[in-house]
Design a protein around this nucleic acid. Structure first.
Lengths: 341, 341
DNA sequence: ACGATCTATGTAAAGGTTTACATACCATGG
DNA sequence: CCATGGTATGTAAACCTTTACATAGATCGT
């Protein structure tokens, strides 16, 4: 019973007094097996404590029950919660998840490609916007794949992301509702679709409010805290200071806040600030940061669901799924100060 | 060449004009193969783009090249960085990592146990201090395992953690060096070895400084922000207020800071506060939190290295590895205020 | 020159599963 | 009572690898 080597299908067959084929059928296609037989088999399984050897099964079936998740940086705090969504969805469908990180290193990417080619994963979830595997010739061999956050440029692969335009729109609408008209947008010049979309949301909001282009101040940074701080410095050189800073992400917003505070200004009394992402620190800033929350767990869940659909149907039901991000109102936004209005 | 079905060892053998056994040997034990033959095989491998089918290999060898990592909560921001350490170490030894989270749910634990029993993982890394699998009878079937942070109580399994006593000692020594003598310890009553060890470090530090027990104030919370806030409230009811709060973890410290600030006190002017863990938010608090940093990536690396050793040698080289945590000095500690000294 | 030893390679079994195909039985309809 | 078809089960091949054992040729010591 508590034998050292795990029970095989043959042990079960012997005890149930049937053939191994019948055992396999009793497990996977029970409707093809007589009731009485099924009962015998189930008892034998209980007695032996049998569990299917996944290696043998995968070998025979030619596909594994693992999904490879490749991210540029699994240490990213954003990553954890998406992982939860991915894992929950996968497990509830009998899949496990394997994780790998590339650190934007092509060499690493290749290692994972080998991994895929050795049949160890049935599907692939990609966080990088670009296939981390150098040569596009390989693409033919890629298993069913789904991108997260960004469309995968060189792959033609469906992806799950967030509706950045709508999210940015919520932020800018809040600022406008509070009475701001001179709103600066601190962007990110790196070519990621998300960033340009957030800027589009900003512009759309101002358009809708009838705020002319001469009131728009747009600076492009690189999404880091430092670039936020720098943006503030640059703006103080100009004539027209904004009353509010709408930032492309929370990092930039944090930098902006630091920049403003070191110049002695109060937030939100003197300037309002908004971010995007709702990173864990956002709530601990002083003042806490009003921002747009990425529905991280939901993103993971949807990405995995899409992939599983791909694995069974073969055809992607849709090529782009955009989730609606929520506005999180905290304390970094108020009406513009009388002095600067 | 860019065939639809991946190349097998047989394809390589045919092209190299040798037997499959020779191909296998050329790959895994090249010294047993003539130079000329090895060359032919390597060329054939290059031509076919062959990669070993991991399923077949695992089946034959009776063990996989995957390590299962089970954590109670993979969304924990502490987790990400440990994951990096685990993944790097594993990959560089040809292993991949599978991750699972139990959410402290026994049902989930059992699913992973099945997973292990179906030979899908060669080893196990456990974050929970308790085997998440109900019945101890199963333990016999567990693959080589290593615990992280906490010894695994019902398993007799080696673990990698942090020297909590030494860490706590660093915090208390800093406070004492700054001139504090009335130092409160806000603990965590949940039975985790880490928590009691941190308290031991606190006591040892006071002992060494010759600070009598009558000056010691010890409160046990539950490690949450709320319990930190509550501890402050409770202390304000007492006669003897401390000049410094040494907290069992950063969450508690954050709660303490909130509690003190809502009562209108300044940190560190009126009270000093220390934490433990160095969570990502610690640096963003106002004032930024002086705390003890867990060497997370190193913990992951060591845990995986220990497990891999176990997998090859069979015997655990040591049963407990404690890493040295570092003091991170920020702005929540200063000399005690003259008024309260 | 011959047995012994060594080196390089090949043959074939084994690992645990799934499933196409074969078989055996039973029921149904004429 | 026979042909037909359906249902339940068994047989055996296939998935791809690794490796014990067998073989064959070369080298060497006597």
């Amino acid at each position: 019973m508590s034998n050292s080597t795990p029970a095989t299908i043959e042990d079960v067959a012997r005890i149930a007094n049937v053939s191994i084929a019948t055992v396999s059928r009793a497990i996977h296609t029970p409707e093809k097996v007589a009731n009485s037989t099924r009962l015998k088999v189930n008892q034998a399984i209980a007695v032996t404590g049998y569990t299917t050897n996944a290696m043998a099964r995968s070998l025979r079936l030619g596909r594994s029950n693992m999904i490879l998740v490749v991210a540029p940086d699994i240490g990213d705090p954003n990553f954890s919660n998406i992982l939860i969504g991915l894992e929950n969805e996968a497990r509830s469908h009998g899949y496990g998840i394997l994780i790998g990180h590339t650190q934007n290193d092509a060499q690493r990417g290749l290692e994972y490609l080998k991994f895929l080619n050795s049949n160890q994963a049935a599907g692939l979830i990609l966080f990088t916007g670009i296939l981390p595997f150098g040569h596009q010739t390989m693409t033919a061999r890629l298993p069913p794949s789904v991108g997260v956050f960004e469309p995968v440029f060189n792959g033609g692969i469906p992806y799950v992301g967030v509706d950045d335009i709508a999210g940015a729109r919520k932020a800018v609408d809040l600022l406008i509702a509070e009475g701001h008209r001179k709103i600066a947008f601190i962007g990110d010049s790196r070519t990621r679709l998300a960033y340009s979309r957030r800027r589009m949301g900003y512009e759309a909001g101002l358009d809708a409010a009838g705020i002319g282009t001469h009131l728009r101040i747009i600076l492009e940074g690189d999404g880091t805290i430092e670039s936020g701080r720098l943006a503030v410095e640059q703006l103080f050189m100009r004539d027209t200071l904004p009353t509010a800073f709408m930032c492309v992400n929370d990092q930039t917003a944090i930098g902006v806040m630091i920049g403003l505070k070191t110049r002695g200004y109060d937030i939100p009394e003197d300037f309002s600030v908004t971010g995007f992402d709702d990173v864990p620190q956002a709530v601990f800033m002083t003042p806490s940061l009003t921002t747009i929350r990425q529905p991280r767990t939901a993103i993971g869940k949807h990405a995995m669901a899409l992939l599983l659909e791909l694995l069974s149907d073969g055809e992607p039901p849709e090529t782009e799924i955009l989730l609606r991000p929520d506005l999180v109102v905290r304390n970094s936004v108020s009406a513009p100060s009388r002095a600067r209005r």
